[in-house]
Write a protein that binds this DNA or RNA. Structure first.
Lengths: 116, 116
DNA sequence: TACAGTGTTCGATGAGCATCGACCATAGCA
DNA sequence: TGCTATGGTCGATGCTCATCGAACACTGTA
C-alpha cells in the first residue's frame, strides 16, 4: 500500500518535543517552505509549487519532517498533495516560534556562503 | 596571548541571525546551560559549576557558542569565568525563543534513547 | 492503453558538528 | 617554587542528517 492510498500520518503539535520543533525549524529550506505557505491560503499550494533549490526527493523529505512535527497538514487532491500551515495549533504549543520563522527575511538559499 | 588575558569577544544578539540562534538553542546541552543559568543570579555561576554530562573540552565549546550567539556574557574573576544570561537583549531580538527554552522541563541528558 | 505530471522510497554520499583526550595557560595557595 | 583548580586549544573521531539519482506508485488525460 502506498502513502497515497492510505490516509497520511499526521502529528499534532501537542505531541511534539521542543527538540523536534527546533530541529524542524532549524533547516533553512523548511523555513522557506513555512514562509511561502504562510503567504498563501490554506489548501492552495501543492508540494511541487514551492520555489526550492533542491530535488523533489529532498523536497519530499522536508515535507515529511514538517508533517511529523505538526507544522503542516497535508491532503491528497488528485495527483497533487495540498498543504496547510497549522499555525494556530503550533502557536499554542510553541508560542512565538513560528512568528520568528515567518518574520525572517526570505534568504537566498542558493548562495550558501558568499565569500568572494 | 591567551583568552584569559585579553578581553573576551562578545556578540550582541542584534548581530545574530535566526539561523545561528536556532543552531545555538538546538543543542540540549546548551539549553541545559541556559536553564541552569536562568535559575541563578547574574555573575554567580562559573563554567565548571554546571551539571553536564560532557568533558570540560566540550563544555568550553558550548560556552563559546552561547557567547558568540549573544545568549550569555562572560567575565573572568580570578581563575574562574563567571556567566550571565543576556535575557533582555536576546528577548528583544528573538521574542519568545528564550522563553520556550527556559519553559522546557529539565531533560535527563544522559539517557539519550531509552530503548530497552 | 500509453504518456505526462506529481510525489514517495531506497541506498549511497558528503559535510557539519558534538565529543573526546591530551596538552597548555593562568590564578591562587602552601 | 611546586601544586591544584579552572578553563581554553588542538587534532581526531564518529554520528547525524541534508542531499542526490534511480526506481516505483498513483492520477489524469490523450
Amino acid at each position: 500500500m502506498s502513502a497515497r492510498t492510505r490516509s497520511l500520518t499526521h502529528t499534532h503539535p501537542t505531541e511534539v518535543s521542543l527538540q523536534d520543533a527546533l530541529d524542524a525549524v532549524g533547516d533553512p529550506v523548511r523555513r522557506a517552505i513555512l514562509r511561502e505557505l504562510a503567504g498563501s491560503a490554506d489548501w492552495t499550494r501543492a508540494c511541487g509549487t514551492f520555489d526550492l533549490p533542491v530535488t523533489k526527493a529532498t523536497r519530499s523529505h522536508h515535507f515529511a519532517v514538517l508533517r511529523s512535527t505538526g507544522l503542516i497538514e497535508q491532503r491528497d487532491e488528485g495527483s497533487r498533495r495540498l498543504n496547510r500551515l497549522r499555525r494556530p495549533e503550533f502557536d499554542r504549543r510553541f508560542p512565538g516560534l513560528l512568528d520568528l520563522v515567518l518574520a525572517e527575511p526570505a534568504t537566498d538559499l542558493c548562495l550558501g556562503d558568499p565569500t568572494p
